[in-house]
Amino acid sequence: MAFIEAKGLSKVYVRYNAPRTGGISRLWKRERQEIPALTDANFTIDRGELVGLIGPNGAGKSTTVKLLTGILTPTGGTCTVDGRTPWENRREHVRRLGAVFGQRTQLWWDVPIRDSFLLLRDIYGLEEKRWQRRLDGLVDALELEGFLNAPLRQLSLGQRMRAELCGSLLHEPQLLFLDEPTIGLDAVSKLKLRAFLREENERGGTTILLTTHDMEDMLALCSRVMVLGHGRLLYDGALDALLQRYDTVHTLRVTYDGGADVSALTAAAQVTRDGDAFILTYEPATLPTSTLLPMVLYAGRVREMTLKEQNVDELIARMYREMKL
């Protein structure tokens, strides 16, 4: 049986708004609005997988994570994690999982983070020696040594995120949820965090479910992605396959020494000029790069040539457009 299994998982939020019309009647009237956040999601995740969850704002990513952690009850469907229903045996369920919500804190604001970790030791009933060993390992990997005695409120965003991550992994959870873990981090911190997560997944065997807007995170970490839009699961599969499907346009920028005869190229691809350089836009599906290249070389003496794939962000934006998100 799969580690995580969701069948027809749905969540509808109910919101009450002030009516748009009417004057004084607004005092006692209110409008009920139903907002479907997740509709009929079906998926399974196996132990040890590292799955990315992407989608535009309001697509239902966080709702999915909250349902799986058990802090939300769905309005329809079923879901089991390691054989348990998250929202029914919540306390038993959360004992085995870790979660980091990028924009929320779960450590204590006013006390040194070491004290927060101490409290977590007792919350999860960890044995002293094991806790100490795990803490040392995490402090080392996440470079927390310098500010273990500082209260959380004094830490920078990057330090805070590392502290939160340490706090969520102390009890060696089987399953880790990360809701936008790299939000607001600088390039160096992002790289370190990614390396750490990969290590935790590969060596520790922790199953990780990650939501992000950062496509670099996706490329670096996830082999499998789930794309959500308007509360529906639109794609579930390999990241490579997804990229290939939408990565339909390449550009080749080429500069020649002296004159060049580009008539053959103009016939095959769309050619524009940028100063000395020619910019060739083509679709590898109909015109493989390997066919185009000899034509480029034949046209003149090449001084310089660069091949550009589509930027991942642009690609995802295009995918969202095509899926009408």
């Binding site: 952690t69 058990g70 802090i71 919540r90 306390r91 038993e92 959360v94 919500f101 999860y124």
Partner: peptide, 20 residues
């Protein structure tokens, strides 16, 4: 103040991932 802040910010819901 800590609990009041957590309640006002909605953070209290996230405390539910702790088995206590």
């Amino acid at each position: 103040g800590e609990l009041t802040n957590l309640i006002m910010s909605g953070g209290v819901a996230y405390m539910l991932v702790r088995p206590i």
